[in-house]
C-alpha cells in the first residue's frame, strides 16, 4: 500500500475564521477548534486533467462574452500558480468572478444604484500551463458599498477560486489593486494581518501592459505544497 506525503499546514499569514469587524462571521464562524487528523489519499488527491470535461472550455477573455465591448478600463491579469516552496503548479484551474467597472454584480441580490453593463458578466476560467502560468483579460472592477457598517465600501477586487492538485490545496481568495485606500479600512481584507495582507495586492506591470490595448497586473497565487515525496509505508497483501 502506498503511503502519502501530506501537504503543509497554514503558514503565518491566514486570517482567523471569526473577525469581529466582519459582522457576518459572528453566526457563521465555527466556535470549536478544528480537529487534527492525518492526511490520507482523500486529502492528497484531487481532480486533474479533466477540466474541459468537468467545467467546459476556458473563458480567458471576459471582455468578449457578449455582443458589444464592456465599459471600463481593460486590464490583463497574469501570473503564476506556485506551491509554498516556489514550485509551479501546472494544469490547475483558476475560476474568476467580479463586479463590472461601476462596481455592480450581475446578480439578483446586488441592487445598489450602479449601472448593469449588458456586455459584461464577470465570470471567467483559465487553466495554468506547464510553468504554472495563467493570463486573463477583463475590465477593472469598481468599488461597491455593502451593509457591514455605515458607509462601508469594498475595495475593488477580483474573486479567485483555485482547486490546486489536491483537496488539501483548495483556496478561494480575492485580488486587490495597488494604491487603493479602501484596502486598509476594509474588514474582509483586514482579517488578514499585516504584512501578509499585501500578498493579495497585485502589482501594476509595464511588461504585461500592452500598448494601445490594456493595463497589466501581476498576481501569483501560492498554494500549500507537498512536504516530501510519497513513500512506501508498508507492503502487505
Amino acid at each position: 500500500m502506498t503511503g502519502v506525503a501530506p501537504y503543509s499546514s497554514d503558514d503565518a499569514g491566514p486570517p482567523p475564521s471569526r473577525y469581529g469587524d466582519y459582522r457576518s462571521t459572528a453566526l457563521r464562524a465555527p466556535s470549536q477548534p478544528r480537529v487534527q487528523a492525518p492526511q490520507t489519499l482523500t486529502e492528497t488527491t484531487g481532480p486533474g486533467g479533466v477540466w474541459d470535461r468537468m467545467m467546459g472550455s476556458a473563458l480567458a477573455d471576459l471582455t468578449t462574452q457578449h455582443g458589444g465591448v464592456p465599459i471600463g478600463q481593460r486590464i490583463i491579469v497574469s501570473g503564476r500558480v506556485l506551491d509554498d516552496r516556489g514550485r509551479p503548479v501546472p494544469d490547475t484551474v483558476m475560476e474568476i468572478w467580479q463586479a463590472n467597472a461601476a462596481g455592480r454584480y450581475i446578480h439578483a441580490r446586488d441592487q445598489w444604484d450602479a449601472p448593469i453593463d449588458p456586455n459584461f458578466t464577470g465570470a471567467g476560467r483559465v487553466v495554468t500551463d506547464a510553468d504554472g502560468r495563467y493570463r486573463f483579460v477583463t475590465v477593472r472592477p469598481g468599488a461597491y458599498p455593502w451593509g457591514n457598517h455605515h458607509n462601508a465600501w469594498r475595495p475593488a477586487h477580483i474573486h479567485l477560486s483555485l482547486l490546486g492538485p489536491a483537496f488539501a490545496t483548495r483556496l478561494v481568495t480575492q485580488l486587490y489593486f495597488p494604491d487603493d485606500p479602501l484596502i486598509e479600512i476594509d474588514p474582509i481584507a483586514n482579517a488578514v494581518p499585516m504584512p501578509y495582507r499585501q500578498r493579495m495586492v497585485s502589482r501594476f506591470d509595464l511588461a504585461t501592459t500592452e500598448p494601445n490595448h490594456a493595463l497589466g497586473y501581476l498576481f501569483d497565487v501560492v498554494l500549500k505544497g507537498r512536504m516530501q515525496t510519497p513513500f512506501e509505508d508498508d507492503h502487505h497483501d
Partner: peptide, 20 residues
C-alpha cells in the same frame, strides 16, 4: 512576503461564476 496566499470569503455573489 512570499508564502501561502491568504483565504478570503466567496461573498454572496458567486452564483454566476462558480456552480455550473
Amino acid at each position: 512576503l512570499f508564502g501561502q496566499t491568504p483565504s478570503q470569503t466567496v461573498g454572496p455573489f458567486f452564483h454566476y461564476g462558480l456552480p455550473w
